[in-house]
């Protein structure tokens, strides 16, 4: 804010008279000149505070009047939180369905494998004529039982794999929900930029190092490619390497 030439001339004039008063030992005169000089500063300060106050008032009024913003605060933000909670629930459900199906399937596959191995051994003995008639009768019974079990187990495996297949539908559902939340976040971001532009072009956006350090210790959630850049581990190997370098 440039001071006008008049103001500077006035101040010089006052300064000279202050020196004169002091040199001539006129204390009362000096004090009154000093008070006049201080008055200059005060009136400038009041003008500036007044101007800032008016700007802030207008900005806040304009901002509060924005109905869309009120809607974001009252409805869309809570909705977004709810959507994200739903994403958590949906992905959890899909993971549990998938894990459950896998846990059910593995014993079925294992039993088929061990039965087939046992029968394979017996069959090899039969082919090399090492089986007695009684042994062969047992093998024959085992074979027909194995065929029944195979049919039942593969039917069940097929059903479990279909469950896994369908459970992957969560990706579509949650993807659509997350896209909506991204749109909202972009919207809020542009509103905030507007707020800063309107009321804060004087405020310096200082990065408080202390606050940031405190934040980094809090949970950050999963790393998101393209969003979380910088000092991130890349897979379990990185984690293991890091831990071993720390003496684990």
């Amino acid at each position: 804010m440039a001071e006008s030439a008049v103001q500077i001339d006035d101040k010089l004039e006052l300064a000279r008279s202050l020196v004169n008063h002091l040199e001539s030992g006129d204390d009362d005169g000096a004090v009154s000149v000093i008070a006049e000089l201080a008055g200059f500063r005060d009136s400038m300060l009041f003008q500036e505070v007044g101007r800032l106050t008016r700007e802030l008032h207008d900005s806040i009024n304009g901002f509060v009047m924005d109905a869309q913003l009120a809607d974001i605060a009252q409805n869309e933000m809570p909705n977004a939180a709810e959507r994200l909670r739903y994403v958590i629930a949906t992905t959890e459900q899909a993971a549990n369905t998938t894990l459950g199906a896998v846990e059910d399937s593995l014993p079925l596959a294992d039993s088929l494998r061990s039965d087939a191995r046992h029968l394979g051994d017996q069959w090899a003995k039969f082919k090399s004529r090492q089986l007695t008639v009684d042994d062969f009768r047992d093998l024959s019974n085992e074979l027909s039982r194995f065929l029944d079990v195979t049919q039942a187990n593969t039917d069940e495996l097929h059903q479990k794999l279909s469950e896994v297949l369908l459970a992957q539908g969560y990706q579509d559902i949650t993807g659509q929900i997350i896209r909506k939340v991204i749109d909202l976040v972009n919207d809020v971001e542009s509103k905030l930029v507007e707020l800063i532009r309107l009321s804060g072009h004087r405020a310096k956006l200082t990065d408080k190092a202390g606050d940031k350090a405190a934040k980094d210790i809090e949970a950050q959630g999963p790393a998101v490619p393209g969003v979380d850049k910088g000092d991130m581990v890349n897979g379990q190997d990185d984690v293991d390497d890091l831990l071993s370098s720390l003496g684990f």
């Binding site: 279909s162 297949l165 992957q168 539908g169 990706q171 579509d172």
Partner: peptide, 14 residues
């Protein structure tokens, strides 16, 4: 027709 390839795969497999 689906914009999510996962859903297209699911339907294709079904």
């Amino acid at each position: 027709v689906d914009d999510f390839s996962t859903m297209r795969r699911i339907i294709k497999n079904l």
